[in-house]
């Protein structure tokens, strides 16, 4: 029983890493997918816009990368990759909690950034000279993914020092 309790810290930390990768990744996949469909529509009419629409399609991809980054940090601090380390159950639960901001903010922000990118692709398709302004709008959604990433990173670093 005590052995299970000792390992449950690693389990919760791993669960947190999985959440961060899984939810942020799902959000990015949906967002990039939606933007990709719109980009394909524009390209079938005007292939010269490939460079422009690709930027919009890639915008919602960042949340998945943020989730991956947090997952790597957790895996590294808990000894799942790299040097072995001891993780108590409390620490494991804390790591799990630290992963939640990027997991859920990543999921939602990527989906909405994808929708915003679709609309921006429409704008660029109709008015290519408005590329700069159209880019700012979906980029604003990124702010909330960055805030969540910041909280998750600071939390993981803080827990590691405990």
């Amino acid at each position: 029983m005590s052995e299970i309790m000792n390992n449950s810290g690693v389990f919760f930390a791993l669960l947190g890493a999985a959440f961060a990768t899984f939810f942020a990744g799902i959000g990015s996949a949906i967002g990039v997918g939606k933007a990709g469909v719109a980009a394909a529509g524009v390209l079938s009419e005007d292939p010269s816009k490939f460079g422009k629409v690709l930027i919009f399609q890639l915008l919602p991809a960042t949340q998945g990368i943020y989730g991956l980054l947090i997952a790597f940090l957790v895996l590294s601090y808990t000894g799942i990759i790299g040097d072995p380390a001891t993780v108590s159950m409390e620490q494991g639960l804390l790591y799990f909690a630290a992963c939640l901001p990027i997991a859920f903010a990543g999921l939602m922000s990527a989906i909405h950034q994808g929708k915003c990118s679709v609309a921006a692709i429409g704008t660029v398709s109709k008015k290519p000279d408005q590329m700069g302004k159209a880019l700012i709008l979906p980029a604003m959604v990124e702010t909330y993914a960055i805030l969540a990433l910041l909280v998750s990173i600071l939390s993981v670093f803080g827990i590691a020092k405990m």
Binding site: A38, A40, G41, V42, D46, K126
Partner: peptide, 16 residues
């Protein structure tokens, strides 16, 4: 239904 693809194509056609 999701008309994302169709709307993107229409956006370009609107310019014509």
């Amino acid at each position: 239904n999701d008309y994302t693809y169709a709307v993107a194509r229409v956006r370009f056609k609107e310019t014509q």
